[in-house]
Write a protein that binds this DNA or RNA. Sequence first.
DNA 1: ATTTAAACTTGCAAATTGCAAGTGCAAAAT
DNA 2: ATTTTGCACTTGCAATTTGCAAGTTTAAAT
Lengths: 139, 139
Amino acid sequence: MKTNEKRSDCPISSSLDIFGDKWSLLIVRDLMLHKTRTYGDFTKAKEKIATNILANRLQALEEQGIIIKSPYPDNKVRGLYKLSEKGVDLIPAVIEIALWGNNHLSDTDESSPFIEEVKKNKVKFLKKIMDKLMANDAA
Amino acid sequence: MKTNEKRSDCPISSSLDIFGDKWSLLIVRDLMLHKTRTYGDFTKAKEKIATNILANRLQALEEQGIIIKSPYPDNKVRGLYKLSEKGVDLIPAVIEIALWGNNHLSDTDESSPFIEEVKKNKVKFLKKIMDKLMANDAA
DNA sequence: ATTTAAACTTGCAAATTGCAAGTGCAAAAT
DNA sequence: ATTTTGCACTTGCAATTTGCAAGTTTAAAT
């Protein structure tokens, strides 16, 4: 990946410096919907990310404090990835992107695990999913 | 740019297929804050986009129906770019990205022309900016 | 008619992506 | 106890994309 050079002080530009690519927010999506994931779980997502890109993005997101890697119980090889609070705060943006895609792009999965729920009540959904993710933090 | 291949039917993934890069949403940002722009205006933005990338992105966004290029009054060389309705609908996502950047990234411009206003009342800001952009459509 | 200027194009080097194998190490199986 | 399996990455390399610096084109101004 590239050096952490900011193109400007604009918050949008600086955000895109971090996750402005085709993969980073998909990793956030998977963590948002499943709360924790192993490396192998990510490779099983339907977009089929290459393993070198995955390793690179996981490291970058961890360095940025967006995700947290913790040890897998009773296993020295595996790691367990989850969203940090900074990562959880990305969920509203991800939701808006999902809504836009669902409204304006053809052939997007209407039966997506959460789109319907989001459309019904965005705030309620947000609260619910955040609660679920945070509950996990007690561990 | 690449072929319009979708990696999956996920609305997030499909959205990122279109604007998942470091520049596309900055073009949307500039149109969102200034309602119309010429090619040259974009090159003057502080992030200093290369002209070939700009031309490429403008074309891609136009092909996707996110921006509209119309002729500049009494000028056959210039064009005037503006957001389509599909593009205007991206504003909520851009706002969430801006808020995240402003909350979590250091050295982002607090005095950004709109951040303060968004923070005060997001819905009100959204309405205001959309009204402004739509008023322009009467022309 | 000549100059200026804005809107792209083009050529090329550098960085990033994506694919296909490989490596290393711990856990499970024998 | 030794082998085998499986998961988490690495590595090598070709293909694509990015970024920089110059063009080129066409219309507007002088």
